[in-house]
Amino acid sequence: MSEWSEAVQERARAIVAQYPQRRSAVMPLLFLAMAQDGYLTEAGMIEVAEWTGITPAQVAAVATFYTMYKREPVGKYLVSCCTSISCMLLGSDQVMHALEEEAGALHGQVDAEGLIGVEHAECLGACGGAPAVQVNYELIEGVTPDKARQLVQWLRKARPETVNTDELQQLFGGTTSFEWAIKEEVGAVGPYPAFESFGSTAPVSADGTES
């Protein structure tokens, strides 16, 4: 009865199989549902309810608690600006303002084209590299208002299929929390976290990095 493609159902089965009780798979399946429609639809929640054997109301109870389950379209690129204390002290309000102005969308909105969504976020765990910004949950540290504007302009122009933290950092970042990092081989393909098991990852393309 599933509306999902056979490949997606295969992924769902694999996710459900990881847990002793299938209801425990509700959170990863919600991301999988988001990856199908770009955001979490009612149909997606009903689908998850069928996979987990709980009611749609119980699925909605989970989905409406977590801010990362987006129940409205957020565009192809969701740009989140940290406005918690470390970032705020280092000017994240200006970064947020620059993002909003450049994108033409306020917090929680999507630009006119439906391409870029902007939001402010609570602590992204990158205080050492504040202010921090994420694009589709791929992190950029040390972002200035100017870099933020460039980021929006670049997303609009280059429209990369995949965004990747290393590339973004190189193009738009500044100070980082650590000088070393393990190289990220894959990037996110939509406004949900890049997890291989959800199919929301793709290898970074060799030529997609030019601005």
Binding site: A60, A61, F65
Partner: peptide, 19 residues
């Protein structure tokens, strides 16, 4: 038959059904 649940937990927590 859990057809009602807490939705929008946080400042706007409410009991409701699925749409």
């Amino acid at each position: 038959d859990p057809l009602i649940e807490f939705l929008d937990r946080g400042n706007f927590t409410q009991i409701n059904t699925f749409p």
